[in-house]
Amino acid sequence: MSSLIGVLALQGDFESHAVALGRAGARACPVRRPADLAGLVGLVVPGGESTVMQRLAAEYGLEQPIRAAVQRGLPVFGTCAGAILMGRGSELRPPRWRLMDIGAERNAYGRQLQSTTLTLPLATFGEFECLFIRAPRLFDPGPEVEVLGRRDDDIILARQANVLVATFHPELTEDDRLHRYFLESCGAEASETSVGR
């Protein structure tokens, strides 16, 4: 039986993550309530509006259980809005979960017209097509953070123990390597080959 990965499904592109996880050989289930966290071997916090996700997570009692589970070692993968929530920030909103010792600034490159696709070299993976959509910027990593990719000086992919963050959207391309890498850290077995759509 394949392992169960939760995808925070309060708002955003949670369906795309579920599809990507499925291609990589995992089962994905939506997380909307604290009870949905039971039995998960990993959690994805997707792209979307970080302020909306944070507000709903706090209101529906998900924020504290997620933080506790991640602090106990549950692997978590945050993309874009998810990366913002994992880091720290000086902006008023959203309040951060501070699960990774790294600065995260929202909409750091501007509005949609500044959204861009860049093929960038990532540690472990090599060239990767990265879609940046009203993307945040990661900076000022703590000593325990392993930087896995940069866009000029800004960090775009990083890991600290069981927390993995990307400021781009691997779930929006057919390239499942990052999802497979995350599944390995969950102790889940990714299937051998990618099943393209």
Binding site: G12, G47, C80, S115
Partner: peptide, 23 residues
């Protein structure tokens, strides 16, 4: 440090729409 596939591509346009889903 990267190679740009250009701004304003259809994938980026649809990408923002994806981010608004469930909202």
């Amino acid at each position: 440090n990267g190679t740009a596939a250009g701004e304003g591509s259809f994938a980026l346009k649809v990408g923002l729409a994806e981010m608004i889903k469930g909202g």
